[in-house]
Amino acid sequence: MSKKSASVWTSIRFWRRSAAWVTGTATVLLIWLTFDTMGQISMGSDADLAKGIKHRIPAATVINYHVDYQFDQKRGHEVPVIGEKEKFFGKEWSAKDAAALLHHGKLTSQAKNCMNCHTLLGNGGYYAPDLTKAWLDAKWNDGTMTGITGKNTKEEAMAEFLMHPSQYPTHARMMPDLGITQDEAVALVAFLKHMSAIDTNGFPRNFSQSAKRLEGGTHAH
């Protein structure tokens, strides 16, 4: 090279090589971390659920169990707690049926574009409540929604609401009728129940305290 750079700091060659090395290193690290993460977030198995072995993302058959969200002393935030068996739409679902139901529910959530009003795991639109832990929301457990939909169980109430949301308004801002069928509604509820059992490192924070904090009104006015 005829025009030799005065110092390495003004040498294009130096910066080009550094850029390539840094980018390459970051990419390799990301790929390595991705392999590790994929291992940790693949769905658990039905057998592990039965044995009480925890997975960040449980098997679809988690719909056969009671799900809760409780503070964990060691981790310093709330975590999903999978409890006793409970019926889901009046029955226990086989591993195959539960997986098929979850598949249908996930597909329906995309086909109906839920994510452009709601957030799922905190991502999406901000026009409607976050759905990450919707299955555990006090609204479905304290009799409000079972009351207005006239259903006995919360899964039935949720399904009924999803089919005819604008008939059961809770706020001036209503959910529109998206033409959700009975089968799709059941599948969506399974999708929501499964999502509520995902270990989200404590998001949303203090969700399990929400009902208590709302008691007797709020100071927020």
Partner: peptide
């Protein structure tokens, strides 16, 4: 309000939307 005070959820969400 929705997150820090009330802890999130359906009612907390709409209370904040109505502030």
């Amino acid at each position: 309000v929705e997150r820090a005070d009330l802890g999130g959820g359906w009612d907390a969400y709409f209370i904040a939307q109505d502030l």
